Computed example of a mutant assay.
Amino acid sequence: MSEAWVTELVERTLTEDLTGGPPLPHAPDLAVRHDVTSSATIAATRFGTADLVARAPGVVAGLPVAARVFQRLAPGVTLTAGARDGDTVATGDVLLTVRGPVRALLAAERSALNIASRASGIATATRAWVEAVAGTGAVVLDTRKTTPGLRPLEKYAVRCGGGSNKRMGLYDVAMVKDNHVAAAGSVADAVALVRECAPSVPVQVEVDTVAQAAEAVAAGADFLLCDNMPPAVLREVVAVVAGRAELEATGGLTLGVAREVAATGVDFLSVGALTHSAPILDLALDLRAAG
């Protein structure tokens, strides 16, 4: 995640909560002027300490971004880390302690939790897949099936969980799918056209039969995306390809079959569910002292 992107995410996230109403006469400062409840019930001079706490076990991610949310609304806030991204935590563990103006802490609460909970949920789901294939040599990958606007955060969370990133966009790997083959005329023609247009970009071809895999390797593909192949067929592809291209299994994968698929000899398992279906990790902000 770039510094500029994190800054933009923090601003965009806070804007969802803190715009849309007029400044309150007794609380004109930007940080809390649209948090009606906190402005009405908490004195502007009141300081306090709050803990960001895990309500369930999992793997945490996004804590530095959550910290930035608090810093945006209370530049002088004191932050004490209780965990680091990638750590496995238990229910009740304190992940981050913040001290500052209570109004600002509560105004930042939901934005910070939304970011950290989403990222931690993805990291937790990823860790389960990584553990399922441990020792096989296969690497767990994400996909481009991410929440619009949150791709850098979600792919960062996959790395925190022990997985790896596939394509960040349509520019860093050329993925030749059936529609591209139909438009180009053949797999070989599609690969040749990509090589001519972007010679430095790796080329991956989607295949769903052993014959297609052999054709794609002969055409010079660097990677094969083996779509919805059962383990027996994957083993055939591994034998036919014989190390001439990297192999990625995808489609219909579940944790229950992950190890069996990884054991076929493929290099990667790509799992869209890491980002499109991972539940959040339940986190909360508990105000424990104020004065």
Rank of each mutant, 00 (worst) to 15 (best):
R127M: 00
G161D: 01
R195A: 09
R167T: 06
R33E: 11
A134Y: 09
L63N: 04
G291K: 13
F70L: 13
V271S: 01
V69Q: 08
A74Y: 02
T49K: 13
E236Y: 08
D286T: 15
P28L: 11
S111G: 12
A211K: 03
A119G: 11
N114A: 12
A128F: 01
T250A: 01
T250N: 00
E248W: 04
P202L: 12
P202C: 10
C160E: 05
R195V: 11
E11N: 13
L153V: 12
A290Q: 15
A188I: 12
V233I: 08
L193Q: 06
R46W: 05
V158M: 07
T126V: 05
I42F: 00
A119M: 12
M168P: 02
D85L: 15
V201E: 00
G163S: 05
G76D: 15
K166G: 03
E3T: 10
G137T: 09
D85V: 03
A214S: 05
V77T: 14
P64A: 13
A216Y: 04
S200H: 15
G161C: 06
L95K: 01
S186G: 01
A83G: 11
A216D: 10
A192C: 09
L274D: 02
D282F: 07
R84E: 14
V217Q: 06
V60F: 07
N179L: 10
T80L: 14
A44R: 15
E8S: 12
E215W: 02
T147A: 05
T80Q: 14
A31D: 08
L14Y: 12
W129K: 02
E154S: 06
A50K: 05
G76Q: 15
E215R: 07
G243C: 07
D178W: 08
A190V: 15
G121E: 00
R99K: 15
A174G: 03
V205L: 05
V210A: 04
A192S: 13
G272C: 09
S39D: 09
A242S: 07
T147H: 06
D267T: 11
V266D: 00
R110W: 11
V102P: 11
L283S: 11
A43L: 12
A125R: 00
A54D: 02
V217K: 10
A184R: 12
P230W: 12
V77H: 13
P199M: 09
V60I: 09
S120N: 00
